[in-house]
């Protein structure tokens, strides 16, 4: 479809917000619908069905992604609150997030190298365990592609939030600190949101680990990218 109004930002903004509203409603009704997954699938469906070019839609879409900036700054609040509450565990969790995120950067690079992926995919995949706004910025900074980084990051978050708690329990981890830090470091906000639904303590630690991972990934991605 080619119509003038499609490239008006109002179209992209209202379509996205409307579909997000529907997804929230569905989640409330069913309890298991993942709002982001549902919104994205519906969005892709609409774009494909009506043959709307992504660039046209993104005139409004980019207005919405703009708010990832203040949203990331807003993560300072849970970080501050959790830091006050979990003083004893700060050091172990910080060490876990630092080593875990370094391990993630190197592991992703090695996988891409061994499976013969393109260099740009390799760079894009490095920061995918960090929260999306950070992964997007880091990918841009080290020469990867922001949109693809967002996709890989969300896939990582979804996977971690679905299997994370189970995998950690199977591996014999029982401590809230270990589970929270593991899920938060590996699968950022989407994993954290999942933990919050089960346990305030795990969710809080996960949010803290996620914020630390955002910092360590931003700081370490550039040096690690020189290795590949």
């Amino acid at each position: 479809m080619n119509a003038e109004f499609l490239s008006n930002p109002v179209f992209g903004v209202s379509l996205t917000v409307m579909l997000y509203g529907c997804a929230l409603w569905l989640k409330q009704k069913t309890g298991w619908v993942h709002p982001l997954l549902a919104t994205s699938i519906a969005l892709i469906g609409v774009l494909l069905l009506f043959d709307i070019p992504y660039d046209d839609y993104n005139a409004g879409g980019s207005v919405i992604t703009f708010f990832l900036g203040p949203a990331t700054v807003a993560l300072a609040v849970p970080l501050y609150k959790q830091a006050l509450r979990f003083r004893k565990q700060l050091l172990p969790v910080a060490a876990g997030a630092l080593i875990g995120s370094l391990c993630g950067l190197v592991f992703n690079g090695l996988v891409m190298l061994w499976t013969g992926a393109s260099h740009s995919l390799l760079l894009t995949s490095l920061p995918k365990s960090a929260t999306s706004p950070v992964a997007i910025e880091v990918a841009r900074m080290i020469g990867g592609r922001p949109e693809l980084a967002a996709v890989l990051t969300v896939l990582t978050g979804l996977f971690g939030s679905v299997v994370g708690p189970r995998v950690l329990r199977l591996a014999g981890f029982r401590q809230d600190a270990a589970i929270g830090a593991g899920v938060g470091t590996a699968s950022h906000g989407i994993g954290t949101a999942r933990l919050f639904a089960d346990s305030e303590r795990q969710g809080g630690i996960s949010g803290f680990a996620m914020a630390l991972t955002a910092i360590t990934t931003s700081a370490l991605a550039l040096p690690v990218s020189w290795l590949f």
């Binding site: 992209g12 996205t16 917000v17 579909l19 997000y20 709002p35 982001l36 919104t39 994205s40 969005l43 892709i44 774009l47 992504y54 839609y57 993104n58 409004g60 879409g61 980019s62 919405i64 992604t65 708010f67 990832l68 949203a71 999306s132 706004p133 997007i136 922001p146 949109e147 693809l148 967002a150 996709v151 969300v154 906000g189 989407i190 949101a193």
Partner: peptide
């Protein structure tokens, strides 16, 4: 999550 949706549509 809302703010990520347009990026995911970029898939």
């Amino acid at each position: 999550m809302l703010f990520f949706a347009p990026l995911i549509a970029g898939v």
